[in-house]
Design a protein around this nucleic acid. Structure first.
Lengths: 218, 218
DNA sequence: ACTTGTGAACCATTTCACAGCT
DNA sequence: AGCTGTGAAATGGTTCACAAGT
């Protein structure tokens, strides 16, 4: 109980990365303990950052042996809400949409991608990468029966806002948006914009103007 | 000249978004001027943020009429380095790689995606979405002839570090990495990690714990 | 000796608030 | 009256540095 107030987006992202790292360590290494500086080095962060994050999710280690891998893995999973299944839907079955279906299906059994939608009748009424495809017109109905809480938008920019509204009306409270437009959602819905173009233009910018973000430690 | 020191990644990303917004406004609207609060509202930001960013790139508007759209568009393009062509290559022709080929090809004529690579011989020696595909073994040779400065990594996690090294050795100074691992590169190479899994897990986290990031203005 | 946990310091980014312009 | 440009304040995030544990 007593959920901590306001955990930052950055922290949640890092917890997700720690979790995957620990999963792989737990599967391959026989050392049941790990130090903050080891996690840090594997994730490209500082040890202080890792300790701060673990403090934030209320996880404690031992001064002598560090953190117990299995325990931390469990704790991070529980923090991220891996205790119950989460149902997701994707809208926009273009190349990117299909790639994401492939990427997310079966990556995590608790994140169930249970429906995909498209406005093009030629793309629906079939199964792609194991996910059933429906016409967008059926979005509300299908989402209601599947209890979907999270949506992924991969439609063209001009259609994105409408789709977002429909998702929200259908009960979705979290959206991962790949369309390169600012989408308005009610305050109780979380939206994460992944703008591939600006990501690439950023890389190009810093590739040109020698970056020196990496700093020699100490 | 007199390049301003240290422009933040956040700022560059926003400039990229402003630029695309202005491009569309320039094409569709006949009003040659725009106010900071208009840009802000269209991008989901505050007017102060927009003015600060434009100040950062050294662009000035007029108190009475705001910013000249065509001028600002030109200025943002020039800031982002759109004056000269930039050559890019993608490594890893899976579903995601193919989707990105489709996404980035012809999106911006100055960002030329000129080669794709894969370790699987069955995936190469052909043209996908207009991009020629080569075996990874030819990476260095092909990149050298094409003068590629920017790389996109969409290979599985365990192959990503090696590919990054090869890209760097071939002269690449900016990498957009989709593999969910921390990649080490020399300090003069810029790397941007786009981790789809942690993005989705973040959305799921905040979708569960009602976000209230949106705040009523004033 | 080397670790964790953490207040405090530091640094980056955003927002405020207002002078100055039109 | 309503805008821009910008110091200064506020906020948010990261790192320092050290007490305390083993």
């Amino acid at each position: 109980m007593a959920a901590q107030r306001k955990i930052s987006e950055r922290t949640v992202e890092r917890i997700s990365r720690y979790r995957r790292l620990l999963e792989s360590i737990h599967a391959t290494s026989d050392n049941p303990f790990i130090y903050s500086h080891e996690i840090a080095s594997l994730c490209g962060l500082t040890a202080a950052q890792v300790r701060r994050d673990l403090m934030t999710i209320g996880f404690s280690g031992s001064s002598a042996r560090g953190y117990e891998v299995a325990e931390l893995l469990r704790s991070a999973s529980s923090f991220l809400g891996f205790s119950h299944e989460r149902r997701m839907a994707l809208v926009g079955i273009g190349y990117l949409g299909r790639a994401l279906l492939d990427y997310f299906v079966d990556r995590n059994p608790l994140f169930k991608l249970c429906a995909a939608f498209d406005a093009d009748p030629g793309k629906v009424d079939r199964v792609i990468h194991g996910v059933r495809c429906y016409p967008v017109t059926q979005l509300k109905t299908v989402l209601a029966t599947h209890q979907v809480s999270t949506g992924i938008i991969t439609v063209p920019a001009d259609a994105a806002q409408n789709i977002a509204w429909e998702l929200v009306e259908a009960g979705v409270t979290g959206i991962l948006n790949f369309a390169p437009v600012q989408i308005r959602v009610p305050a109780n819905v979380f939206i994460e914009n992944l703008d591939l173009t600006s990501a690439l233009e950023k890389v190009a910018y810093f590739a040109g103007n020698f970056s020196d973000k990496e700093r020699t430690k100490k």
